[in-house]
Design a protein around this nucleic acid. Structure first.
Lengths: 341, 341
DNA sequence: TTGTAAGCGTTATCAC
DNA sequence: GTGATAACGCTTACAA
């Protein structure tokens, strides 16, 4: 292992000078800088992370708590991880992973062992028991998701209320006369993830505002059978025929099963009814048929979260009116929308 | 911050005793142990990771290099990340993330800065330039994937050759008389990921062995249009009618577009032809229609990789005949298989 | 069975 | 502009 002592010896300077050349925290004569940088180069010196963390009280690591709970939506989290990791690297930080199932102890572990300087907490629940713990840590924490009480923590999330409203607005303005919302499966409802409630409220509000018929149906799960059951309920209750029907499907995992169930019944999305999904554009493009969607914008959400986090780390002011920052979803019309009348 | 000194003071012992109580590296009298553990408990002591790493030369961290390259298959990597993280936690280790686009420097950074004690390198290419670098690091490295020359490194991967063979075997034994392999898109071929070649070889071998007609077609990309183009080529060349056709689709991203293209042509998988995909069971279950698949077994592959890694870390012997450990794929018949004749 | 003390490789505060 | 030197909090010989 090559240390800063080795570099110092080779460059003919003191160890502290090597440190200052690397950190730029005091001015160095051009000549000294050159010699030190040359020595670093020839020896291939890399500073020891542990020693640096110990001395500087900064680990240069971001803790990322990901939702690996059983049954959680796996498809959506990867873009978050990717974007967060890349943002971290841009600021010369690393990312350490913790899983949701570690609960609140996972947070205290990351913080109290000085494993990281800041924490990103994904997919927080409405009354997430980790929030009060997170708020009491000695490191800044940013939430992706909006709990009922953020306890002063900064939050970034998609504007799900707006998404719900946009979905129904779109259907209403394209002359649909009834909306069925194929909701989240029961276990998701049970976990009480906050965005579910927000989306439903937005959809409901819009339906009321437009005076359009509106029903919510909750599938038992996101399987094919779950979609079948929910559709049975939805279509029987209202009768399949007559008028323009719009189906809103906020759970990404339920979209494909739903589309297939419809096709199996001889109901063609885009011809016999409309379907709007809430999912990433990638999911929407590859569904069969490609589904009109409101984008979840995971990259945008992640980037904003990291921006705030680094401002907190650098003790810069965070230019936000509220502690909650909401990202506007984007509507993209695809094949599952009925043509305008 | 509460340190081991604080614990020692409260328990009325020396700092080293606290350390030994925690590590169990020497025997402690029951009474002393009790007092120390009580002090740890009441103070909520957590050892400082940096200091521990510095003193012990062990960071208790596993470096995980994930393929976030543009266009890489995102859906498949999450189960790997999840399983690897959980295995690490079981051995009281943390996981630090690096992205593929950091290349070989990412590896040296992780190792030379003592950021981790071992590295898991995912999705290695046939002639991956990171392999020689990885082999020269001071920390053990395990590969997920099999390069042409593993340079002595341990590798774990799905047995893609066997997968290719199993796919065609299945079709041959269920009385199909020709096989079309809808290959990987050109950019994947260009990246020369090793498993592509292996899968194709296995399929080809089996076709030859069974004396069954066999064609490979390469789509321009994994989009809907890409699938269309490939199918056009495949079906024109051979004519759509006559005999039992089996389609093998090894790229998970191409499966759904292909199924849809077939349906659009009035060709129903499971009635007019067979389709076998290479993808996780989860993907297979939720495709439309559910596709007969060979499972990628990401959890099994990850667990085996971590088993080997920890044996290397603990200087235990690794009970493997070869340096390459291959996992057998599992075939599950679903709706896209023609009934036996 | 326990304590003492010398590092581990940086950073950062003093001096000069 | 640069150099000593004392932390940082833990592990681990070496003593007792």
């Amino acid at each position: 292992m090559v240390t800063s002592r080795d570099v110092a010896r080779l460059a003919g300077v003191s160890q502290s000078t090597v440190s200052y050349v690397m950190s730029g925290r005091r001015s160095i004569s051009p000549e000294t800088r050159r010699r030190v940088e040359e020595a670093i180069e020839t020896l291939g010196f890399q500073p020891n992370a542990g020693a640096r963390a110990l001395a500087s009280q900064r680990s240069q690591v971001i803790g990322l708590v990901v939702p690996f709970a059983p049954g959680a939506d796996m498809t959506g989290v990867l873009p978050f991880i990717e974007t967060i990791t890349k943002c971290a690297r841009e600021e010369d930080h690393n990312v350490i992973l913790a899983t949701e199932d570690e609960g609140a102890e996972g947070l205290t572990r990351l913080s109290d062992q000085s494993l990281c300087d800041a924490i990103v907490l994904m997919e927080v629940g409405s009354k997430d028991p980790r929030i009060p713990v997170a708020a009491g840590l000695s490191v800044p924490v940013i939430l992706i998701g909006v709990p009922d009480d953020p306890a002063g923590l900064y939050c970034v999330d998609l504007d799900y209320t707006l998404a719900g409203r946009m979905a129904v607005d779109e259907l209403a303005s394209s002359a649909h006369d009834r909306v069925v919302l194929l909701g989240y499966p029961r276990d998701v409802m049970a976990r009480d993830v906050n965005f579910v409630r927000r989306f439903l409220r937005g959809a409901e509000e819009s339906a009321a505002a437009h005076g359009i018929a509106y029903v919510e149906v909750s599938p038992p799960d996101t399987s094919r059978a779950g979609a079948e059951a929910a559709l049975d309920e939805a279509l029987t209750e209202q009768g399949p025929g007559g008028g323009r029907l719009g189906l809103v499907v906020p759970d990404p995992q339920l979209i494909q099963p739903t589309l297939q169930s419809l096709l199996d019944r001889g109901l063609v999305p885009g011809r016999d009814l409309s379907v709007i999904g809430l999912c990433t554009d990638r999911t929407a493009e590859t569904s069969t048929p490609p589904v009109t969607n409101l984008s979840l914008e995971p990259r945008d959400v992640s980037r904003r979260a990291m921006r705030i986090l680094f401002r907190l780390l650098n003790h810069e002011s965070v230019p936000t009116a509220s502690t909650v920052e909401l990202v506007t979803p984007r509507l993209t019309l695809r094949q599952t929308s009925l043509p305008a009348r």
